[in-house]
Design a protein around this nucleic acid. Structure first.
Lengths: 125, 125
DNA sequence: GTAATACTTGGAGTTGGCTCCAGGTCAAGC
DNA sequence: GCTTGACCTGGAGCCAACTCCAAGTATTAC
């Protein structure tokens, strides 16, 4: 699969895909003899994984660390798990905070609705 | 209340508080005759509100718009409500996406735990 | 064979959101 | 009356995460 096909498929620009690879956010992508990237399904899997994690707000730095550990093989299993647990906990906290803000917004919107109705009544008088 | 007290109270640096005001993220703060900021409880309320919204990821730009509408008074009620609804919807989507990612991480962590146990068993043989 | 198109690289530029700094004012303590 | 400390302003600097660009190469279409 070419870079533009992968770009299309995941909604990430070719520049971003190259940047992710250069930064070590995904393992090195398979190449054709001439040096042109030829994404295997596995490469695509990494792209999808990283897109998902970035979408949830995990930093480039921490994802780079994860990939670096992955590249070192089985002896980093525990470290990788610890990293994932730490990020999971941080994500959970962020979600809880956002959930509270969501409820606050809902309340605020409800108050606005009341005020708007009250305003309209006044005008009709 | 001085800027450093407000900074202390909400965990935002004085620089950030000044930046928020200059950017129109909070309405102009009350001043003493000599020009020094003297936050009223209402000013503090705005700081707290903006801190909460920024914490949930609402952009400076959209919050600035909200404050600008607020400054124009009652005739912007509907517009302000629309803005809040749009942001609420975006926030909800982000939360849902993050929730999915959280579950994915939990699954991944469970798989790691199994693999680590399997590895240990092998070593004990 | 040459023009167009899709890729390559290294590196510079951009954006959002702060964060820091220089230079100045003012009130309080000695 | 002079130092100290907290504040002020305008503007520069910084960081994360892209995004764009120039210069080069390879394949395809005619």
């Amino acid at each position: 699969m070419t870079i533009s096909e992968v770009s299309e498929k995941y909604g990430l620009s070719p520049d971003t895909l190259r940047y992710y690879e250069k930064a070590g956010l995904i393992p090195p992508v398979n190449r054709k003899e001439n040096g042109i990237r030829d994404y295997t399904p596995e490469d695509c899997g990494w792209v999808e994984f990283i897109k998902c994690m970035r979408g949830a707000g995990l930093s480039i730095e921490v994802l780079t660390q994860y990939i670096a550990l992955y590249a070192k093989g089985n002896r980093t299993l525990q470290k990788r798990k610890n990293l994932l647990v730490a990020e999971r906990d941080r994500l959970q906290e962020r979600i809880e905070q956002m959930q509270k803000t969501l409820e606050r917004l809902n309340y605020k919107i409800a108050v606005y609705e009341e005020r708007i109705v009250a305003c309209e009544k006044k005008l009709l008088k």
